[in-house]
Design a binder for these strands. Sequence first.
DNA 1: CAGTATCCATTTCGATACTG
DNA 2: CAGTATCGAAATGGATACTG
Lengths: 224, 224
Amino acid sequence: MGASYYQFCPVAKAMELLDERWTLLIIRELLSGSEHFNEVRRGVPRISPTLLSKRLNQLVRAGVVDKRADRYVLTPAGEELRPVVDALAVWGVRWVGELGDRDLDPKLLMWDVRRNIDCDAVPAGRTVVLFSFRDVPARDRHWWLVLTPGGADVCDVDPGYEVSVTVIADLRHMVLIWRGDIRWQDAVRAGAVEVQGPEALRRTAPEWLRLSRFASVPRPERVS
Amino acid sequence: MGASYYQFCPVAKAMELLDERWTLLIIRELLSGSEHFNEVRRGVPRISPTLLSKRLNQLVRAGVVDKRADRYVLTPAGEELRPVVDALAVWGVRWVGELGDRDLDPKLLMWDVRRNIDCDAVPAGRTVVLFSFRDVPARDRHWWLVLTPGGADVCDVDPGYEVSVTVIADLRHMVLIWRGDIRWQDAVRAGAVEVQGPEALRRTAPEWLRLSRFASVPRPERVS
DNA sequence: CAGTATCCATTTCGATACTG
DNA sequence: CAGTATCGAAATGGATACTG
């Protein structure tokens, strides 16, 4: 665990565990349903495996995570960190607007999008959404989202299915839409995003292609 | 600020600022009303002045704190960290029970007690409460709480007034009472705490000598 | 009171390669 | 897939003394 603050204050005691680098991001991943080591790594790609291993073991020792064979599962104490993570997300979305170019990871974005697909609202049959980030180097530019009522998959190589909808976008603007910082319509109108495909699909898309849980958090009024 | 996580996730962006050692404790102090440098230091006594200065400046740069002459004041963004701090406190009080001996600082305790005195409920005239921590070295054993309807003061030397109520306690048990981990009555019954003084004062004490805001948070059921 | 200055021990973390 | 092993660069932060 982190160094002690030598205070009996519950905030201090909580932070002794939680203020170490990466810890709350790992918990965020576990809260979103990741269970396996490399699954967590996908959501926190820049942590080294050594450090992830160390952090997970710390969390196990702290009683926040339970290790069952190859699965890491939150204990009740871990589940109760959800209000903390949510409060941080709400604050972050309201008050930390500036994203650096390095913050814009298309793979993370696609994973997040996938995770929030509403499978119950997906059209019958197979729907394939191709995301094309025009300002991203070729290697990470194209992403295929393959949706069926049974589940959603992300590919970074063409899976070969017919594409139903194509989204051509600046990566930054797509991230901003995801976060709820700007609206689809405004990005389209500004020419930062273009959506191609049958009108019917484009219209129903917001029902199954949901944005971040925090996209609808109201933003502070701009006091000029 | 701390190192970037290179993620657009609001939790990650929030933690880039907030996961550095001491930062959230400083914010906790500012949220409780401290404004001056050495006032914050009293609540976070083990931080070095250099580091406190650095952290405060980081918070100013992040737009969380406003510096006005010698006062540090939370901005709206800073005020909105209250839900984060509260969520951490609730979690801490429920899930981080074990306190080390080094966590038991009588000065911090007395400051906290003082801060939570309900001045509107204090008896008319002057009420002096002497706390005597029998297991604490002489230098930090005795604390006088001087209450008047106008305010509350803490002294670690005898201010010379007549003592109205004396609380003789193990420091650990007094801290546990403060945190809401145990109840006054149980501690008294167990002999860990003794309260001397007129019945009338002892009965009304809980009205003006309030416990931690988080003392009433329900604790997890003991699953045996 | 409100900080700065200095200095170094220690930790921490990232990168990378490797193993069962 | 699920981690360990190793290593060195960087920074973090604790202690202390000092200043306007």
